[in-house]
């Protein structure tokens, strides 16, 4: 049972105080179980509360109601067992790529020897393809390379859950495809439970085992879950030619369209009432 409910999110609520009335519940009654080693995508229109769910899981955002259990333990606050790759790389500019990764490694592997830590850092940087640029400062790295450092920093901690908050949002499409493959390569090897927040339909199909589509906010919750039934490791060119790919795509887009229509209907009703 534990394997199926490695991460358990129940009745999750995020409410912001509203000075002119009741609290505004951005996320309301979000429920989701994540299997161990699964890659789950969180998809929805921008502003629907995807990132809010992710930051609550990361512990960076306070939970208003409900709860999150990771590996049989309820979370309270942030921790290195749930490492995050942010949309911007968030590197410390006064440290090299190596130093940025080492900062977390020192903290998590307290009892390891210096040599062991060095191996961990160098390994994770080489996995993301930065073996030659380890000792460069972030200003000397391109945007894509900076994001690679961010990924290396997250996986070096050997987290229980890897949280990706639109990690490719600021990259050009070629770099984005490169990085998608880099992350998939790592995840195929390490089998880390992962949550990917995105608004890119193709990206979610290519990368995820399951896609969780959220309804539009406020009161956003899980709208529809789709299992993406492709074998791993995946090959982009083969997937794109597969008929199932377009089936998934169609399902997702029609759901998103429905959400949009719903939203417009509500807006019209509101306008009438007013």
């Amino acid at each position: 049972m534990h394997e199926d409910k490695y991460v358990e999110i129940f009745n999750l609520v995020k409410a912001y105080p509203n000075p002119y009335g009741d609290d505004i519940k951005v996320v309301d009654g979000f429920e989701l179980n994540i299997k161990k080693g699964e890659i789950i995508g969180l998809l929805g229109h921008s502003g629907c509360g995807k990132s809010t769910v992710l930051t609550m899981l990361a512990g960076l955002n306070e939970i208003s109601d409900g709860g999150i259990i990771v590996d049989s333990r309820e979370i309270s606050g942030p921790g290195p067992d749930r490492s995050v790759v942010f949309q911007s790389p968030c590197l410390l500019p006064w440290l090299t790529a190596y130093g940025n990764v080492m900062l977390g490694v020192e903290r998590v592997f307290k009892h390891a020897t210096k040599a062991q830590r060095k191996v961990i850092v160098e390994y994770s940087l080489s996995v993301v393809g930065l073996a030659d640029s380890m000792h460069k400062y972030s200003r000397e790295l391109s945007g894509g390379m900076q994001q690679r450092v961010g990924i290396a920093r997250a996986i070096a901690l050997k987290p229980k859950v890897l949280l990706l908050d639109e990690p490719f949002g600021r990259l050009d499409s070629l770099t984005r495809m490169d990085l998608q493959d880099v992350i998939l390569g790592i995840l195929d090897r390490e089998k880390i439970t992962t949550m990917l927040v995105t608004h890119d339909v193709d990206e979610s199909i290519y990368m995820c085992d399951r896609i969780c589509m959220m309804t539009n906010g406020p009161h956003a919750k899980v709208g529809k879950l789709i299992d993406v039934d492709f074998q791993r490791p995946r090959v982009r060119s083969e997937m794109i030619e597969h008929p199932k790919y377009y089936d998934y795509r169609e399902q997702i887009l029609s759901f998103l369209d429905e959400c949009e229509l719903e939203k417009e209907k509500i807006a019209k009703q509101k306008a009438k009432v007013a």
Binding site: L60, G77, P78, G79, V84, C90, R107
Partner: peptide, 18 residues
């Protein structure tokens, strides 16, 4: 300080001195 850098410190649960 950049809020992102504070978040990094929070995720890593750095103590006060570090």
């Amino acid at each position: 300080i950049d809020k992102d850098h504070i978040n990094v410190a929070r995720v890593l649960r750095l103590g006060f001195w570090s």
